[in-house]
């Protein structure tokens, strides 16, 4: 049985983790894979940590949520604290290296804890608002769950109307995706 990939993405509202989950699963679906995405939609959706649970597999997916993830991505200090519960010895834990004072809170038992310079890359090389696309690139780089090409198509279908008005935006998003894939290779 092919082992599917389980991903938990967490961040502050507005950091775009739900969009990343959506684009990622759309891309996987477009590749003919089974994909399931469920947002955490409790009262936390207002002013709390936003979590997206994503599963991508070659076979039909079982329960919509999972105990532990293969990949956890935490984009804020609160997100780090919120998501350590999804880690076990198999988990790859990513957090942004811009987050301060979380050393104590990082998971102790996971396979690997990796600081990702996503905020920095977005801010210095691109634009802060494509930060989440850098993160998506990193997830794709680490897992290979979807191809770069399909990810671009999914971005196009989600943001195409914005790209039409401003073609530079397309370039920036595609670049962000690529940089995400690169930085994850550099830090791992």
């Amino acid at each position: 049985m092919a082992k599917g990939v389980k991903i938990a993405l967490a961040g502050e509202g507005g950091q775009g983790v739900q969009s990343v989950a959506m684009i990622l699963t759309e891309a996987a679906y477009a590749m003919g894979k089974e994909a399931l995405y469920i947002p955490n939609f409790g009262v936390e959706q207002r002013g709390g940590v936003s979590v997206a649970f994503v599963q991508i597999d070659d076979e039909k997916i079982g329960s919509p949520k999972f105990k532990t993830a293969d990949i956890v991505v935490a984009l804020s200090d609160r997100a780090v604290r919120r998501t350590t519960m999804y880690c076990d010895q198999e988990t790859l834990f990513f957090y942004d290296d811009n987050i301060e004072d979380v050393e104590e809170d990082l998971p102790k038992n996971s396979k690997k804890v990796v600081a990702l310079p996503a905020i920095k890359v977005a801010k210095e090389e691109l634009h802060p608002r494509v930060f989440n696309v850098v993160v998506m690139g990193a997830v794709i780089g680490a897992t290979g769950v979807v191809t770069e090409e399909k990810a671009k198509e999914a971005l196009e279908s989600k943001l195409g109307y914005k790209f039409e008005q401003n073609p530079e935006l397309r370039e920036m998003n595609f670049k962000a995706l690529q940089r995400g894939m690169e930085i994850v290779k550099e830090v791992m």
Binding site: T25, Y29, A35, I38, K65
Partner: peptide, 10 residues
């Protein structure tokens, strides 16, 4: 249920 309401699948 709420999971089915909110989740996406094919």
């Amino acid at each position: 249920d709420g999971y089915q309401s909110k989740m996406r699948e094919s």
